[in-house]
Design a protein around this nucleic acid. Sequence first.
DNA 1: CCGAATTTGTCCGTTTTTGACCGAATCCCA
DNA 2: TGGGATTCGGTCAAAAACGGACAAATTCGG
Lengths: 252, 252
Amino acid sequence: MLAEERRMKIVDLATREGRVDAQDAAERLSVAVETIRRDLDVLQRRGLMRRVHGGAIAVHRLNREFTVSERRALNHSAKLKIAEVAARHIPEQGTIIVDSGTTTQCLSAYLRDKSELTVVTNSLDLATEIGSSSTRVILISGRVRPTTMSGVGDLALKALENISADVAFIGANGVDLKSGFTTPDPDEAAVKTRMINNAQESIVLADHSKFGKSFTMRFANFESVDRLITDTKTSTSIINEITNKELEVVIA
Amino acid sequence: MLAEERRMKIVDLATREGRVDAQDAAERLSVAVETIRRDLDVLQRRGLMRRVHGGAIAVHRLNREFTVSERRALNHSAKLKIAEVAARHIPEQGTIIVDSGTTTQCLSAYLRDKSELTVVTNSLDLATEIGSSSTRVILISGRVRPTTMSGVGDLALKALENISADVAFIGANGVDLKSGFTTPDPDEAAVKTRMINNAQESIVLADHSKFGKSFTMRFANFESVDRLITDTKTSTSIINEITNKELEVVIA
DNA sequence: CCGAATTTGTCCGTTTTTGACCGAATCCCA
DNA sequence: TGGGATTCGGTCAAAAACGGACAAATTCGG
């Protein structure tokens, strides 16, 4: 059996059963466990599954299980540092737009009790956290997308229509040289684009795990964003290439 | 079973039942209690649940308890009964409007995972609770009023403009023979009025403590509401007088 | 057909996971 | 409030899984 063929069968197994047991797969495909383990590593690098002790878990199942709170914990310290740096760009007064997402969510600590500040957001969680403080919060309506707990759709775009802000803090799922800033959901992408358009200055927050990835919907290219904040683990070569595109990159 | 798989099942248990009993989970997943306890520690570190004596509780439940705990304690059992009766008027499919408020909030238990139902609400807490289920949630928002954590103002009215629903469940601060249904905040009153106007049928939920009180803003008179649900502690004389005004009163 | 590169299997020391044990801390109920 | 039951958390040992090294087998390019 060809190596690729074997890997296909492993993917097959994974999608059918949701997981792969290294030991079990080795027996079924009559190869050594080490081979399976190596295969799983390869498939993980291809983004097809996630390696865990004893085997691997199919991504489709992962997405379902990964809740907001779990994603929040992912690279949490990096996100906190990014938020800390981003916070320097929050004005004392005026209006800012804050996108939904686990990274932008970390900004909440810097947004409470700013009585001269208006925060416009489509994130339920963020609004809940700072809504009870003296900061003026405007929550964007819309259909609630369960995976991100944010308001999207036509209503959200309508609500944003007449709002203009000083700064917009935007999250991204993918940052790639070819594709620009991307996200999987079309509705969510439309909201992000509108947010960027309606702000004087726009800042994207993205930790190292987002780089080199691209998803279906581009919501901005490098020219339309003013600043990109990331953490120290992001490869410097990518950062240099982005800096060449007239986009200021800040490393937290 | 893979370790990660087991942990997923624990998260599953937690989200479904709100809590995890270490002993019980150990038996169900046929591993030692110690293993479960270690898993719970890991999951806590991932921010998925909060460790407590005897097991752990899901974070989504945790947030819920924190946000409305004090207010909800007031006449809580009465509110639960009112919600139970009100729930009989929730259609299996179609669109309903649910107002913000501690009483209407209790409806959330009956609104999760109704895939044929669309819930329109201006309550952040309600949207958060049912937004993660398969129920379609449309959040009406605008400026967030800190005391009630609800969306009000011009933006909210605009968003409601083109929405029509089968039933509206409305909360009230005061129910009085002379003043009708009242609330202190003008913005909130405007939203309630619009909600009632945009629904085929409107139901007000009010426990006994609301009767005989009146506040600045009337959002509805007795004629414009179809049904009033209250608890057994409400004085029968008031109920009789209200019934005379062509308003059906249901006692939970 | 040959040599190089890649893949695969084996070996083995290291790490991780798991279940068991036990004294201490905590909870629950009378 | 006190005592019994439960739970906790730390240590230990066995088992499983890991990963790196290396050799054998296979594939590839010329």
